[in-house]
Design a binder for these strands. Sequence first.
DNA 1: TTTCTACCCATTTTT
DNA 2: TGGGTAGAAA
Length: 708
Amino acid sequence: MARRFVLQPRAPAPPAALQIDYAEALDPQQHAAATAPGGATLIVAGAGTGKTRTLTYRVAYLVETGVKPEQIALLTFTRRAAREMIERAGALLDGRCERVRGGTFHAFCLETLRVHAEAIGYPRRFGVLDAADAADVVDLARTRMGLHTLPTRFPKKRTLLAMFSAATNRGIALDDVLTEDYPQYAGHLDLLLDLQRAYAETKRQTGVVDYDDLLALTLRLLTESDDARRAVAGRCRHVLVDEYQDVNALQADLVEQLQSAHGNLTAVGDDAQSIYGFRGADVGHILDFGKRYNGARVLKLEHNYRSTQPILDFANHVLAGAREKYDKRLFTDREGGDRPALVQAPDDDWESRFVAQVVLDKREGGVALDRQAVLFRSGWCSYALEAELTWRGVPFVKYGGLKLAEAAHVKDVVAHLRVAENPADAVAWNRVLRLVEGVGPQTAARLLDWISTATGGAADAGGPQTGGAAVHALRSADDIVPSPAVARNVARLVEALTPLRDGSPPRPGGDALAPEAQVERVLAYYRPVFERVYADDWPQREADLDAVAALAAQHRSRTALLESLALDPLDWSQEAAEGALKDEAPLVLSTIHSAKGLEFDTVFLLHALDGVLPSQYAVRDQDGEDEERRLLYVALTRAETELYCSYPLAQYRRGTGQFLTEPSRFLSGVPEALLEPWSLVEDAAPPEAADAPALPESPPPALPGRGG
DNA sequence: TTTCTACCCATTTTT
DNA sequence: TGGGTAGAAA
């Protein structure tokens, strides 16, 4: 490794002038962390120890002591976390904090590549693929290689993408990924290596990058181009990283590059909350922080301010079962409080009614809806509850689970925008063409060839002329399509796309039409197609199209709209919540993953069933089971005052005809001193009089066969 | 060549 | 449940 000359920050202005009394606002450990001098600092922060608060104060402190906000990079895993911290820092200090450069790793990388990509031979204009798009590109590459007809037992496109992604994110060879995780496909190694190359080449030709490329290309840029590194890392006088336990090899290297100019790095994390192993995260990076950054300061936050002692006792008990023992014991001043409840329900309908009723009771008791959260392992776990809440008129938002942008009909609309944005985008073209009546795989492939010949096949050319060429090519494609009727259909498509590209843009790089007007044009064309393609259920899907139009209105350009759809996809019911009356902050429904870093007065954990949490797909090895256990730990430690873990006695797994009936292995056998067993009973009153189950005052006798 | 229908299969978490 | 496929009908 080259020698580094590390610049120390200039001595800050005398602290007498500070607006915020940091020693007063923070405890000694937090204070030391928030006001740490430059250099590398790792803050090991247990759940609920004020990690976000500390990082927020650190932002304010840095700004207040003279660091320009633009020179602070705050990297997080979700956009929500970054936004929240910057807002809170702004509230603490002043508007200067709003100028801090905060966002996800991926968003930061995208921003960097938009400016500097040419330094590594990439165009600055490129599209960003979400996971489904990327899988389609893999498919395209596979077809082009002639691999579409293959011996059986070849991985599916999503599996292929997962393999390539694992190799990239963990910084290892495909060979090793196969050996470790996909031994059944090890025999296909040569074929898979070819396909990996073909996938990379296809992305390049069609001017698109996937999520991993955003990280990998930025890392390459910073490593290979001294100019770019000076420009990018030079602007990062302080680098702050949240949730460092969840960085993967690529992200850890990126962080190292970003801090290289100034050496000021603050990383915050908790090894006990590492829950992104499936995405290549490796706790080793936080454990070896001191090795990578010689002489790094390691500070600890151990005082839990969030949860009552009974909640903490239970969470600690769960974590203690992990194979790897974490040398950390949280303590709290919050004595008293109820033991967490383990609620057994006959089925998920009962479970939903129970949760809905307790939520409403607590609201009566003064706990606002948005101070309560319902958490679960996977998006589908809350379906029954969502129906119940809707029926009762309880407003809620759901984080995690399916995204709006993942719905087929939304992808259709977006594909039309994408071909206008990037005429070389073969996957988007394919989608658009296949929607034309009478165009199937064969015709679409021929039209695609025709288009790419006309545009020179190079994304690098870019620009409106190329787009004009693509549409022009379609205009003269009558010989390619099977019949005049299909030609007319293609002509309608051409007509719809033309205004998206035609007309000289008012300014370089600008769009001729505002994004919402573009979406309107697309919708005008797409609506009949939509009703034909989704003949069975289009009325239920229709609202999503309006949501896309609404989203478009919030963006300055089509480019920004497409980026936002790829990097910050709207959760399903956020959209519904936008439409609803905003007279009351809604109840929070969230996957555990999406709830990381948040806290609530009352937390409900749904579907605490073996096979769901831990997921039956994750328990194949000990590492997988440990990660599920940490996931449960994350869920439990979101709660401040009350915690309810519930499970239905039987849960039907669709497809397999299999029933899950065991409570989570992490919850069975927990001593009653830690966890109070509950069972539900129906109120004697008829449903019309009391349309919800009554709750027992104290633990009633458990239903036969289980419980306490 | 496209489109429809019947059938089989796996089924998570996120950028 | 829905996504992918194979075979048949148009």
